[in-house]
Design a protein around this nucleic acid. Structure first.
Lengths: 341, 341
DNA sequence: TTGTACGCGTTATCAC
DNA sequence: GTGATAACGCGTACAA
């Protein structure tokens, strides 16, 4: 290992003191312009690089933040992370990404290892509605800012950035109704998670507001997976009185729905219409492009990062948790556009 | 901020010395079983947590490794990362993920900030063939293990984990030839990157070995994007003597190819056949599933992590760079399976 | 404006 | 087996 130059080396070299060097390097005001220039020049010359570990130890900050998501191989989460990075990198922070793969133990394990890695904050989208709240509270107690995005949990003093899932679902369902569909099914997901509950409620409200019959047999709780969506759709299609449209809480299950519908020889959107949620890129690239609800993930990530930056240097007392809600946008494509054909 | 308990607190509490506490906590052999138990119990009682920053400062290790990839929202890279995590987490390492978004400046910037964050190693898939080698050499010089996966560069003393891209391409092309296709086009990519060069060479060799005509006009250099693939395919189809099959170096451009082919009213695979590369999940889920080459990304990630673990504690002198090559697997699906119809 | 001295929390080296 | 002490590299009161 090549010995790294420290401020001591520079000091020695210049006949100064490490303290002076430190000050010069940090642009401390009470230092003569002359020594500042001199120090900075020699620092460059000697290939000096600040030891972030020492700085971290001293300041108590690691300049690392943890981001926990269910998975990174979805465009939505990848984009949120990108938004976070865009705000945080320029401020000198690094992002440690952890995946839970939708497993509670992983979620807890990730939180613990991030805390023991002394991250300055944790930005996360929760995996499981059942995860005991006390693990989250323990984060707050350590005065490590905790910020939820997308999948949140109501916890005192914890900020969150979400979209208006109710409204997104409402818009999507209304759009189907306007197209003339009357029996609209809903592929839901674990409704103990707020996002799925709210999407369900938005769907339901749109149905009721339009004077359509709200039929519980048309609601199926499934997973955000292609195969799960396909299986659930099979059940829907085998109903005595099957739906003429499906609003899915996930693009992945929407894709499964489309597969099943096609395999049964039905036409989309003539016989049955499909709308997804998240605006994953594949919805645009399918031969039969899928109508979906955009969640502006990059924006969500940026906002989450900004809230973190606000909170990071405040004490627990002075900070005010904020609940930011972004507006979703319905992107209409072929899978639901009857009039276009 | 709640004051954290340190080994001093424990020592004081027990009338011992910090050194003893440290030893007890680290299971140092020369410590009595009695004090060990006692210390560990009180540590638990006092909610002691080791300060990783201090440990890092002392040991010179951060227990962070950097992973740099072009992007994380592709299943391939996400899976490699997963493989890396699976090996490294149990060893106490954390993974800092950086994206280059295929931009050289980002690549350099990421490397520098990872180095200044004092990561213990960098695992990366390079973005740009042109990136000056000296930045990579500067990593090695600092005795920070550098390991390439997938997209590598030949640099002395740097290990790499790749698949046999030549063979993957060879298999894919041979498969098309066996199906009876005679004019096989190739959607390539920047061939200054080894993976794309090797895939091209594998394709070419398969053509030559089969006694088919090698026609340069059937080779197009494009990008791993749907729209780029589509545009390139348009050019191919407008040739005087258009191809009857396309082997794409990317699943994304293969998808674009399929879109273009369909939009021109041609049938797949009857009129023209398509094979991709990477085995992205969507290739399986399309109504017209896409034949592709699997790169066993999780395995690749695990291997990369293992090589890192081997190298991390060795000095520059004693370590031997290894070039590990994994075997790709051709996954045959509808987009190329003529005989099945 | 600069130097002195100390603390951040841990571990390693030397004594006893 | 345990204690005392130094060292990792930095930043910062306090003194000068």
């Amino acid at each position: 290992m090549v010995k790294k130059t420290t401020i001591y080396d520079i000091a020695e070299n210049l006949g100064l003191t490490a303290a002076t060097v430190s000050r010069a390097l940090n642009n401390n005001p009470k230092i003569s312009e002359k020594t500042r220039k001199l120090v900075q020049k020699t620092a460059l010359l000697m290939n000096y690089e600040q030891n972030t570990l020492a700085k971290a130890l001293k300041s108590g900050k690691s300049y690392n933040v943890g981001v926990i998501v269910p998975r990174i191989d979805s465009n939505f989460f990848a984009s949120v992370i990108r938004g976070i990075e865009e705000e945080l990198y320029p401020k000198g922070y690094h992002v440690i990404i952890c995946q839970t793969h939708d497993q509670e133990e992983q979620e807890i394990g990730n939180i613990n290892s991030l805390l023991s890695a002394q991250v300055d904050g944790i930005l996360m989208s929760i995996t499981n509605a059942q995860t005991k709240s006390n693990i989250f509270e323990s984060i707050s107690k350590k005065n490590v800012p905790l910020i939820f995005f997308d999948r949140k949990k109501d916890i005192a003093n914890v900020s969150s950035i979400t979209i208006d899932d109710f409204d997104g679902a409402y818009q999507a369902t209304k759009h189907l109704i306007k197209q003339g569909y009357k029996r609209i099914a809903h592929l839901s997901n674990d409704r103990r998670l707020e996002i799925f509950k709210n999407r369900f409620l938005g769907y339901k409200q749109a149905i009721l507001d339009s004077g359509l019959e709200y039929d519980e047999s048309l609601i199926i709780e499934t997973h955000s997976k292609v195969l799960a969506g396909r299986a659930s759709t099979k059940r829907l299609l085998s109903l005595e009185n099957p739906p003429d449209a499906i609003f899915s809480t996930s693009d992945f299950s929407a894709l499964g729905a489309i597969q099943e519908i096609k395999s049964q020889g039905l036409r989309i959107p003539e016989d049955i219409s499909v709308v997804g949620f998240s605006n994953e890129p594949f919805t645009r690239f399918m031969e039969l492009s899928i109508t979906s609800v955009d969640q502006s993930p990059i924006e969500m990530g940026r906002k989450a990062a900004l809230v973190f930056l606000e909170e990071v240097d405040k004490s627990l007392k002075t900070k005010k948790a904020q609940q930011i809600v972004l507006q979703p946008e319905l992107i209409i494509r072929k899978s639901s556009l009857k009039t276009n054909l």
